[in-house]
Every structure is written in C-alpha cells, then in structure tokens.
C-alpha cells in the first residue's frame, strides 16, 4: 500500500477523487446560507478525510475520524442546530464595511504563504508507516500512547472530564421559582374549570391520523382542542378531508398574526369544552349550534 517512494497510481486516484470532494464539502462553510446544509457538507468532508487517513497508512485514525468527528462532533453540531432553531440562516449583510473582502483577501494571502512554504521546501521521499506499524497500526499507536505518551494521555483524560463538567455547568439553569407540583396543578385546573383529563388525541379513524387533523366527537363535531395549540396558532389545522382551511376557516386565522392568535385559542377551548361536556352527549345537533362545524364526509 505504502511503497514509500511515490504515490502509487491507486493512491493518486484516491487523492484526486476524494480531494475535490473534500474541498467542495468544505466550501459550503463559505457559501451555504443554511446551517444544517453546512453541517452535512462538513460531514462529507470529514468522511473524505477519513479515506485519506487510511490511504496515508493510518487506518486506526481513519476509523477514529469517522467515529469521533462524523459520529460525535458533527452530530453534536446538528443537535445544537436543532436546539437553537434550524431556520436560523446567516445574514450576508456586512456590519463592518469591507469585512468580507478583507477576510477573503487575508485568506488568499494565507493560502499563498502556506503553499509557498510547501513548494519551496524539499521533502524527503516518504518512508511509509508500514515498517513502523508492523502490520498493526492500532497496536503501534497504542504502544506509543501507553509508553512514551502515557502522561499526556492522563492529562488528556483530565481535560475530557473537565470539559464534560464545564459543559454541564455552562448549560445548567438555576431555577428561580419553586416548581408547581402535580397536585397544585390539578387544584388550579379545578378552580378555573379547566380540563382535568388529557386532551383527546388528534386524528380520526379511517381518514387521517396526522397531528394537524382534529378529532371528532360522538356527535360528529370537530374537537379543536385535540390539535396541538402551536398548529392552531399558526393556522395549520386541516379539515377532515386533509384539505387546509376548509371547514375551520372561520375558527382559525389563516396567518400567524400575533393579535389573531389569542382568539383562536379561545375559540378552540370554547368549542371543545362545549362538545366534550356531558350535557352534549345526548340530544340531536341543533342547526344553529356553532360549537364546531359538522362533518361532511
């Protein structure tokens, strides 16, 4: 694999295939507006680098690269992206005048300096790590790690523990108020006449079980309370046929205006408490009853 003198044809092939992919994936850092897209592209870069590591005679580090970088670090990035909101897109408006061009120029200067240093240096022919690895790359790394670098390894372990503790401390939130217990919550609900049971699940049999389709009660009325309130506020409640804003158009505002959100909740709770009440279970539906639109299958 590593003949040591020159790149073999196979390695050149690998390099010239993987290298552009790596650079393309990395360039998403500069050009992509969506942070999630950037994270995915950087993942491609990391996997490509793992291929190159294996080609460079260190299969152990190639595997570690995939496990640590692609599996742990980039996953953590995506996790935090989901936490802070996927829709956060970077604005390309410059706050400091000319900062972008200055950054690009400085970067090009750095590239010129680095590649100039590489081109002006003379390198010995690569010896290759086959002899040093002795057929067992992970074993060779482990031997060195636990002999010459054992103290470094221990300090690195301390660093990892401190980092984990630091993350816990940094993201810890001190509770300023006493948490409401379950009993107190039920007391509040009883006093205010709120619903004591969990709300009915959204969706109805045989047609839709998606969360944006309201359930229907025994009289065939729509229970708006069954749809999550976030969907109700956004006006994303669908009717029973799965068509948006057909039956519930007078109930739910079509846009997510903040002033229009509050009546939607009130309408939803009023309609559901009416339809879910025990006095409604009997009796034929009155024509003038506006608690919920009737089902038209």
């Amino acid at each position: 694999m590593n003949n040591g003198l020159m790149m073999t044809t196979a390695e050149q092939f690998l390099f010239w295939i993987i290298g552009p992919i790596i650079v393309l994936g990395a360039s998403a850092l500069l050009f992509s507006k969506r942070a999630v897209l950037t994270a995915c592209s950087v993942m491609v870069t990391m996997v490509g680098l793992a291929f190159l590591y294996v080609g460079l005679g260190s299969p152990f580090l190639g595997i570690v690269q995939v496990v640590v970088y692609t599996g742990a670090i980039m996953m953590l990035f995506v996790f935090v992206l989901m936490l802070v909101g996927v829709d956060v897109s970077d604005s390309f408006i410059e706050t400091i005048r000319g900062q972008r061009w200055a950054g690009v120029l400085l970067g090009l200067g750095l590239l010129v300096v680095l590649s100039g240093a590489v081109f002006r240096s003379t390198f010995t022919f690569a010896i290759g790590t086959d002899a040093a690895s002795n057929g067992n790359n992970a074993g060779a790394v482990a031997h060195l790690l636990f002999s010459d670098f054992a103290f470094t390894l221990e300090i690195t372990g301390c660093l990892l523990i401190i980092a984990a503790m630091g993350a816990v401390i940094l993201t810890h939130r001190v509770r300023l108020t006493r948490p409401i217990t379950q009993g107190e919550m039920m007391e509040i609900r009883t006093k205010r006449g709120m619903r004591l049971t969990p709300p009915p699940a959204p969706g109805n049999y045989a047609r839709h079980n998606a969360a944006d389709v309201p359930a229907i009660d025994a009289r065939g009325k729509i229970i708006e309370d069954s749809v999550p309130s976030a969907l109700r506020m956004r006006g994303q409640v669908h009717n029973l046929r799965g068509l948006p804003q057909d039956l519930l158009e007078d109930k739910v505002p079509p846009t997510r205006r903040p002033d229009a959100a509050a009546p939607a909740i009130e309408a939803g709770t009023a309609g559901s408490s009416d339809s879910a009440g025990p006095r409604d279970t009997g009796g034929p539906p009155e024509p003038g009853d506006t608690a919920g639109p009737e089902v038209k299958p």
């Binding site: 990395a26 950037t38 970077d90 690009v104 750095l110």
Partner: peptide, 28 residues
C-alpha cells in the same frame, strides 16, 4: 508524495480561516 497532501491541508486550513473571519453564525 507529501506536498499534495500539504497543499490540500493548506486549502482546507484557508477555508476554515476565511469561514472564521467572514461568517457570523457562531455555529458555522
């Protein structure tokens, strides 16, 4: 042998540096 990898490493390092200097989303 080595210089090709070093050039690739330089390019990647430069892209990372420009990213740090230009982008404003702290995760990126």
């Amino acid at each position: 042998t080595v210089s090709a990898y070093l050039i690739l490493a330089s390019v990647l390092f430069t892209i990372g540096t420009v990213t740090v200097m230009v982008r404003r989303n702290s995760i990126i």
